Amino acid sequence: MTDMKKKCLKVYVISDSAGETGESVVRAAAAQFHPVQLEITRFPFVESKTAVDRVVQLAKDTDAVIAFTLVIPELKNYLLRRAYEYGMSCIDVLGPAVDMFEQRLDQESKHVPGIIHRLDEQYFKKIEAVEFAVKYDDCRDPKGILKADIVLVGVSRTSKTPLSMYLANKTFKVANVPLVPEISPPEELFMAKRHKIIGLKISSKKLNAIRKERLRSLGLGQDAAYAQVDRIERELVYAKELMERLGCIVIDVSDKAVEETASIIQEWHYRNH
């Protein structure tokens, strides 16, 4: 049986915009083939046949497959023709969805690159939410707790900051509060509405592994108290007791990806508003 861990798929994402959509779809599809390694290279703002030729030739030379989100028909058709001539694998990420909408709406697509990124109201909400998450990360200013749509609480390394940023990109204003036994939680935490507070818990075994890896990446010894089991257990007990006092929903993030946890939080938020 072939060792899947040794396989590496090169994917070139060609776009006449930033290429974020194409990359996201490719990563989502590749997740179904874990642990196959994925090497994605984005080629954004491709607007000419010359540029298409360069990428196709490079893909052929490096044995890469092509995924694209070109919405300009002339470029899209040219890419498909060139890929066919070379006998290369090439997938249109947006085409089937656009075709379906055209049929159902009886209306032709605008064929304008980058519409999704235009500076509309939603865009500014996202920017505002990201700035909010940065300002009130790690409880730098407790006043953010009362201004936030969502308040995340948990011990160190429970993905509070990544979750804050992910949710900010969904336009939620998120503040997060680290729970440390030696530091009293801010009084604002007890003033916030219960349904806005989300407790994040994690198994001691998982947290121990994460913290050891964190110390290793910083070039520090793994015998620091930060990663010791007894210290971790004490923090988790403290966090559990505080979350019970707050009466908040608690999510176990031990084996969850940030996206999965964020989905649960969003569902909870919408149910309670």
Score class of each variant (00 low, 15 high):
Phe43Ser: 04
Ile210Tyr: 01
Gly154Lys: 01
Leu80Cys: 12
Val98Leu: 15
Ala67Ser: 13
Ala133His: 02
Cys139His: 07
Glu188Ser: 06
Glu47Asn: 06
Arg27Tyr: 06
Val177Cys: 05
Cys139Phe: 13
Gly247Asp: 09
Val177Asn: 01
Ser15Pro: 00
Thr171Gly: 04
Val46Glu: 06
Arg231Thr: 14
Ala83Met: 00
Pro185Leu: 15
Glu20Ser: 14
Glu85Ala: 12
Ser17Phe: 02
Ala168Lys: 03
Ala30Asn: 05
Ser184Tyr: 09
Asn169Gly: 14
Gly199Cys: 04
Glu235Trp: 00
Ala239Tyr: 01
Ile202Val: 11
Arg271Gln: 14
Ala239Phe: 01
Ser204Asp: 15
Ile66Met: 01
Gly154Asp: 03
Arg245Ile: 05
Gly19Cys: 07
Ala192Arg: 11
Thr261Glu: 00
Asn176Ile: 07
Lys256Ser: 14
Glu233Ser: 13
Ala148Leu: 02
Val258Ser: 08
Cys139Arg: 08
Glu267Ile: 05
Glu121Tyr: 11
Ile232Pro: 00
Glu244Phe: 07
Ser17Arg: 02
Asp230Gln: 14
Lys205Ser: 13
Asp255Lys: 14
Ala224Phe: 13
Thr2Leu: 13
Glu187Gln: 05
Lys60Ser: 08
His117Ile: 04
Asp252Trp: 04
Asn208Tyr: 10
Lys5Phe: 06
Met191Trp: 07
Ala227Tyr: 02
Val46Lys: 04
Glu23Val: 07
Ser203Phe: 05
Ala168Met: 06
Leu80Gly: 05
His117Ala: 09
Lys205Ile: 09
Arg81Glu: 06
Tyr123Ile: 07
Lys60Cys: 06
Glu188Gly: 11
Arg54Met: 12
Leu189Lys: 12
Leu200His: 03
Pro35Glu: 11
Ala59Arg: 10
Leu246Gln: 05
Thr261Phe: 01
Ser254Gly: 12
Ser159Glu: 15
Met88Ser: 09
Lys10Phe: 00
Pro35Leu: 09
Asn272Phe: 04
Ser254Pro: 11
Arg82Cys: 14
Arg214Ala: 14
Phe172His: 08
Tyr123Met: 12
Lys7Ile: 14
Lys160Trp: 04
Ile115Ala: 05
Arg271Tyr: 12
Arg271Ser: 13
Thr41Tyr: 12
Lys173Glu: 04
Glu260Gly: 08
Gly22Phe: 11
Arg27Leu: 11
Val93Asp: 03
Val237Arg: 08
Arg271His: 15
Gly199Pro: 02
Lys170Thr: 01
Ser109Arg: 00
Glu244Ile: 12
Lys173Met: 11
Leu218Trp: 02
Arg118Met: 10
Phe124Leu: 13
Val180Gln: 06
Leu236Asp: 07
Leu220Cys: 08
Arg214Trp: 13
Leu215Thr: 09
Glu213Leu: 13
Phe190Cys: 07
Asp92Leu: 07
Ile116Leu: 09
Ile145Glu: 03
Lys206Phe: 06
Ala192Met: 15
